[in-house]
């Protein structure tokens, strides 16, 4: 029930309150936003349950939390905390270089990242209930999110034009289950909601991903690394709602102060989007 909304990364109850006040549809509770994870280095893990519970007590909107790729015990712990969704996230350091979590073994719904349609369908076959394009988290640079969204949605478009014989080839190329490819050929969309994440730093970024076809947006460092988080948060929510209306986008983009300082892809030591198999 998160469609048409903004999910914001928060690191404490105060930020969660700001996010809810701005109209966020959910918050992602994590210890450090991706840009700080990037800066600090080291192994990044699931957050302290105390911090997650503090946020759950503060807001009435759903609370998500991140588990490392393949770390099914972190997921078990998060499920026992009654978080509303688990993000099996490439932003944290992977715990398994071959396997993702068997998400069918859980009741709590999972969201997973994807850079292309094959990755998205493999995550869905493992039980993910939502897909988000990965982008490159913590950079404030939208270019990777755009690439991933265009790749996923572009291939969906091509599959709808494929005949039955070509659908087998698509399944092979994508390394994805044939029944999911056949379903996409019929419906023209993923069988689960498709959101966008990674690098969204301004209201215009959020609106662009919505125009490209995302159904909701995740904003990580973009809110709380800007100079006026409360205003930025509200502006991104307004932009996501009114994403087709340039006059409103102009209004909400006005006088926001500095957006987060962004990074060029060529300068990155770690590309988080490459984590996931």
């Amino acid at each position: 029930m998160l469609k048409g909304g903004v999910i914001m990364d928060v690191v404490n109850p105060e930020q969660a309150k700001i996010a809810e006040d701005a109209g966020a549809v959910a918050v992602m509770a994590l210890e450090r936003v991706p840009s700080d994870i990037r800066r600090d280095g080291g192994v990044s893990r699931m957050s302290d349950p105390e911090m997650i519970m503090g946020i759950q007590e503060t807001v009435t909107i759903p609370v998500m939390a991140k588990a490392r790729i393949g770390h099914f015990v972190e997921a078990q712990i998060l499920e026992s905390l009654n978080v509303d969704y688990i993000d099996e996230s490439e932003v944290l350091t992977p715990a398994d270089e071959t396997h993702h979590i068997d998400k069918w073994a859980f009741t709590v719904p999972f969201v997973c990242g994807a850079t292309n349609l094959g990755e998205a369908l493999r995550r869905i076959s493992e039980g993910a209930c939502m897909i988000r394009s990965k982008g490159e988290a913590g950079t404030g640079n939208i270019v990777e999110a755009t690439r991933h969204l265009r790749s996923i949605l572009g291939d969906i478009g091509k599959i709808t034009k494929a005949d039955k014989a070509e659908q087998f080839e698509w399944a092979k190329q994508l390394q994805a289950p044939l029944p999911l490819v056949q379903e996409i050929a019929e419906t023209g969309e993923l069988p689960v909601p498709m959101f966008c994440a990674g690098g969204i730093a301004t209201p215009a970024d959020a609106a662009m991903t919505m125009q490209l076809g995302a159904q909701s947006v995740f904003v990580g460092s973009g809110i709380f690394k800007s100079s006026d988080p409360a205003r930025m948060a509200e502006a991104v929510v307004q932009a996501t709602l009114n994403y087709k209306d340039p006059a409103i986008l102009a209004k909400v983009s006005t006088g926001l102060g500095d957006a987060m300082k962004g990074l060029e892809m060529a300068t990155l030591e770690t590309k988080m989007a490459e984590r996931g198999w």
Partner: peptide, 13 residues
Amino acid sequence: GGESTTMSMLLDS
């Protein structure tokens, strides 16, 4: 359906 807190705020804005 959706998030009533969010919808309530968006109705205002």
